[in-house]
């Protein structure tokens, strides 16, 4: 959700129980503007909130010209002081995959993970060696946000164009999806390069546009039914909720440029999804 229009756009996700208090909205409007200026971002988006047991993390992302490549993630506990998150490296991702449970709400909180490794010892015996790995919550937060972006961050078709230079930019002539298209999962793309392009059938090939269809759509996501599409207020707003990352809500107002997404949840992936459908 663009920070500039956050106070208006947050109303569109209100039906999912996502609300910011007036105090938070005012504070965010102020601090995100400063954040944008200080870091020379093209725009700053309010990404969402990850609830911890004692405190909540508010998350914002600043983007440059290429929204896919130039992206920095910040977090704040009070909506006014922002801190840069560490980069989610592959190594960290492996470490964090072993942590489960709620976020504590303290960035310096350390999760301890005991790893038992078998080391060949003397006389051909195998000795068990215990190594304790400490992972800071800040690092886990970075990995979680990265995973959410990779798995469920979506944009409507046509909102972004790939320029002949390979740069990915928001499309100035995007006019929104029509109501009938807005109900189809094929009209929404994963905003992630690694998402594979799906095989298209003949109908889709007919309207194929290389500069628009450079991302994979979400209709083939596994398991089937991991998205819930709903029209709010008749057909005024389309709301898409991810069931994989419960708390991820995307909204789009058909036939307008207005769309956005926000995540408000406890930062845990829903691994029970296949049992729940």
């Amino acid at each position: 959700m663009d920070s500039a229009t956050l106070h208006l756009d947050i109303d569109y996700v209100g039906s999912s129980g996502i609300l910011l208090s007036t105090e938070q909205k005012t504070a965010l409007q102020n601090s995100l503007l400063i954040l944008k200026h200080q870091n020379k971002f093209k725009k700053v988006v309010f990404w969402g909130k990850i609830t911890g047991c004692s405190k909540d993390y508010f998350v914002a992302q600043g983007v440059g010209n290429d929204e896919m490549k130039e992206k920095k993630t910040f977090y704040s506990l009070d909506c006014s002081k922002w801190a840069l998150l560490p980069i989610a490296t592959d190594e960290l991702k492996i470490l964090c995959s072993r942590i489960k449970g709620r976020f504590a709400g303290d960035p310096s909180y350390e999760y301890e993970h005991v790893e038992i490794r078998k080391v060949p010892g003397e006389n051909g015996e195998e000795n068990e060696e215990e190594t304790t790995i400490a992972i800071r919550e800040e690092e886990r937060l970075a990995v979680t946000i990265d995973a959410i972006d990779r798995d469920v961050k979506i944009v409507p078709r046509g909102a972004y164009v790939k320029l002949p230079t390979g740069e990915i930019q928001s499309n100035p002539s995007f006019e929104g999806l029509s109501t009938s298209n807005a109900a189809k999962l094929t009209s929404y793309f994963h905003f992630d390069k690694s998402a594979s392009l799906n095989k298209r059938n003949l109908m889709q090939k007919a309207s194929f546009d290389k500069s628009l269809d450079f991302l994979g759509d979400i209709s083939e996501d596994v398991p089937k039914g991991s998205w819930s599409v709903q029209f709010e207020r008749g057909d005024a707003v389309v709301t898409i909720r991810s069931l994989l990352w419960i708390g991820y809500v995307f909204y789009h107002i058909p036939d307008t440029r207005s769309y956005g997404h926000v995540y408000v949840g406890n930062g845990e992936i829903n691994l029970d999804l296949s049992f729940m459908l």
């Binding site: 109303d11 209100g14 129980g17 609300l19 910011l20 208090s21």
Partner: peptide, 13 residues
Amino acid sequence: YFEQAGVGLSQME
């Protein structure tokens, strides 16, 4: 009061 707490639905709803 719930809005102050950051909970609830949008006002019109």
